[in-house]
Design a protein around this nucleic acid. Structure first.
Lengths: 230, 230
DNA sequence: GCCCTGAAATTTGCATTCAATCGAGGTTGA
DNA sequence: TCAACCTCGATTGAATGCAAATTTCAGGGC
């Protein structure tokens, strides 16, 4: 929803966001300002401005007088996020049906076919990359920058989790079938139907992810990404 | 979605947000830092941190080296925002049906009745205040802090517009009927139906608001809130 | 051996200071 | 007269400095 002048602040903000989303840091880890300052070669003032923004986005948390930590997500945090994303997917689906061009549909079908190939070959990295592309393409087809921004922001938090490659293959098969139904509705430009299908798709994904995270957290005492339930 | 320690930064942020949302400033007006500093009695450092956050929320815009301006909204900005809000309403409705208590439903019915009284008496301020309360109550009933936060953020931008009291009474009558249907679905805990009703309700509100803003902007050469279309 | 107390050292929060950019007004030349 | 240019004040962007809070760690008591 923004303007052109790519200020130094925006650059730093983007770099920092990537750095956090990239996921090398342990959740809950302290992030000393000093360290980031030399890492990104800026003084504390612009860095702190960027940290405040990231905290508002929910990627980190700022404890008063105790600095920035990578945010820890409880299972309910993740459920909440997926619910919001599902709502955005619902609008995206409805609006995309009204606004997408025939070429746009064709492109998404291409991505879907490619994704299917990777699914058959069990090439999970590519599978998830293209999965992300399809959802992004539908959201973008809604031609609503505010929607895209909200979607991206919620997704950034989710992406940090790196659960994707560990979903079981039952879920992947179901997901492929759901995607085909989604594409079918998109082809027919059945907005309400598509919105509902995308919503349900995301709700199911939510369940699968939460189930996976729960299993993992009970398996390993110190779960890599999930905080003990609150 | 946040923690307890109410730091000075959060206070300032809240005050500033209220100050912008309150709407005394003309859209597009410059906001010199110095002025805000003495108004809120802080130095520029924490003020600038808060401004960055507000800019990320979309309430103001920061032009490089030219400071903060109250954001101007084009008609499409407003349409976009309402679409996102509609999506959030859709989730809220569905989840509220699953999670709201019987007492919660009773409370909302009370608000609705009170609102109906104000509608009959054409007491618009109270009408809109209670309207806001009902939507907020349903969103809160979804018991999803992330959802509530996103909803509040999008709403803050809309609330700045102060269009509400100017909608014509046809629309208000329709809105009351829609609200009754919404309450009916909530009573029956018909989640999918409620979600769709709330979504459509918000879409219709969007059309009414955009129509009003368009008329106003063609009536007065310098529209108070709307930027000439892009 | 463990826990509590307290002081030093780090780290954060904010104020102040310095540098760079923008904008206004005036000057000069066509 | 008008337009382009230039200079100077004002405002923003970023760096540094200082005080307060916190964390760490050493010593003493149990």
């Amino acid at each position: 929803m923004e303007s052109q002048p790519t200020s130094l602040h925006d650059d730093l903000l983007g770099q920092l966001r990537d750095y956090i989303v990239e996921g090398d840091l342990a959740p809950g880890a302290r992030i000393p300002e000093r360290e980031l300052c030399e890492k990104f070669d800026v003084s504390r003032t612009p860095l702190r401005e960027a940290l405040k923004v990231l905290a508002a986005e929910g990627l980190i948390e700022l404890l008063a007088n105790r600095g920035a930590r990578v945010r820890q997500f409880s299972e309910s945090d993740i459920r909440n996020l997926f619910e919001v994303i599902a709502g955005l997917d619902f609008v995206a689906g409805r609006l995309a049906c009204e606004r997408i061009s025939d070429e746009g549909i064709a492109q998404i079908e291409c991505i879907h076919l490619e994704m299917y190939t990777h699914y058959m070959r069990r090439e999970l990295n590519d599978y998830f990359r293209l999965n992300q592309q399809i959802h992004q393409a539908i959201v973008d087809a809604a031609a609503n920058p505010v929607l895209s921004a909200n979607y991206a922001s919620a997704n950034a938090v989710i992406r940090r989790l790196r659960y994707a490659a560990n979903l079981n293959s039952d879920r992947l098969g179901d997901a492929m079938r759901e995607h085909e139904a989604i594409l079918d509705a998109l082809r027919r430009r059945a907005g309400e139907e598509l919105g509902l299908k995308m919503f349900d798709h995301m709700q199911k994904k939510r369940e699968a992810v939460c189930k996976y995270l729960r299993e993992q957290s009970s398996a390993s005492a110190s779960a890599p990404n999930l905080q003990p339930a609150d």
